[in-house]
């Protein structure tokens, strides 16, 4: 008997239960830095891509307003981003962040009300101990709430702080993955890393691990990821405004769900 039927059913909304593969689109950086190329009109974006992806990560406001464009048997399942951070505001943004903050936008109960198939939380690394400990606390609380509510919790591991260097980047991903497993995540999103790291995490993580990509990977690259034990790929909004995105994404979908 499966102890957590709810989680399993919801998880299968965006991870195909036949091949255990998943292809997601993340449209949530807009809560930090406003509309990005390809996401100026969110309903157009959703209409265009809601059948290519298994799931689309949305901020609560967008999910609420565009619920009619997601979910169900034919369309991508909605996942909701439950936090906000200014960590993505670099020098390119009109108001660069001097102090990085992260606050909660939603919670498990709200995510269920919104009809989300999962809550997606952000785990920021490399911004110092204050932010890290707050982040740990809020994800732990969320993990317990999600368990009670049978809502899958996906944690997005983002080692992007000033304390991250080329030397400790891979280590930070491992540390983040380990912490989030311990916290009670049901799935992990990893930033791009070497196949060995993927393999290692894929081996000891007993949950699905999905890789974040800023561009649609070539079929060779995608193949390597899958071989390294990845459950799938989440494309960021950066991949959208590239010529030929539709074709590449469709090809990736065929590859993932052969």
């Amino acid at each position: 008997m499966n102890i957590n039927v709810g989680k399993n059913i919801r998880m299968s909304d965006f991870i195909d239960s036949k091949d255990n593969r998943s292809m997601l689109l993340d449209l949530t950086v807009t809560s930090s830095i406003g509309a990005q190329p390809g996401t100026e009109n969110i309903s157009e974006t959703l209409k265009q891509y809601n059948t290519i992806f298994d799931g689309i990560i949305l901020n609560p406001g967008q999910l609420e307003h565009h619920a009619n464009l997601v979910g169900g048997k034919l369309r991508a399942a909605p996942l909701v981003r439950v936090d906000w951070t200014n960590a993505y505001r670099d020098k390119e943004f009109c108001l660069p962040a001097a102090t990085v903050k992260r606050v909660s936008l939603s919670d498990g109960a709200d995510a269920l009300t919104l009809g989300a198939s999962a809550a997606v939380a952000t785990f920021l690394l490399g911004f110092g101990e204050d932010l890290e400990s707050e982040n740990i606390k809020s994800i732990s609380l969320l993990a317990r709430e999600c368990y009670r509510l049978s809502l899958p919790l996906v944690v997005d591991i983002r080692p992007i702080g000033g304390n991250i260097s080329a030397d400790n980047y891979t280590g930070s991903i491992k540390l983040g993955a380990s912490f989030m497993m311990e916290a009670g995540a049901d799935a992990l999103i990893l930033p791009e890393c070497e196949p060995e790291t993927c393999k290692l995490i894929g081996m000891w993580a007993t949950v699905p691990v999905i890789m974040r990509c800023d561009e649609v990977p070539t079929s060779e690259k995608a193949q390597r990821m899958l071989e390294a034990g990845m459950t799938g790929i989440v494309l960021s909004e950066k991949s959208l405004p590239v010529p030929g995105f539709d074709g590449k994404a469709t090809a990736l979908r065929s590859l993932l769900h052969q």
Binding site: T28, T30, S31, S32, I33, G34, A35, N59, P60, G61, Q62, H65, W84, F93, C94, L95, L105
Partner: peptide, 9 residues
């Protein structure tokens, strides 16, 4: 940006 951010929230 803030208009969009508010809508996202």
């Amino acid at each position: 940006a803030s208009a969009r951010i508010a809508a996202e929230i």
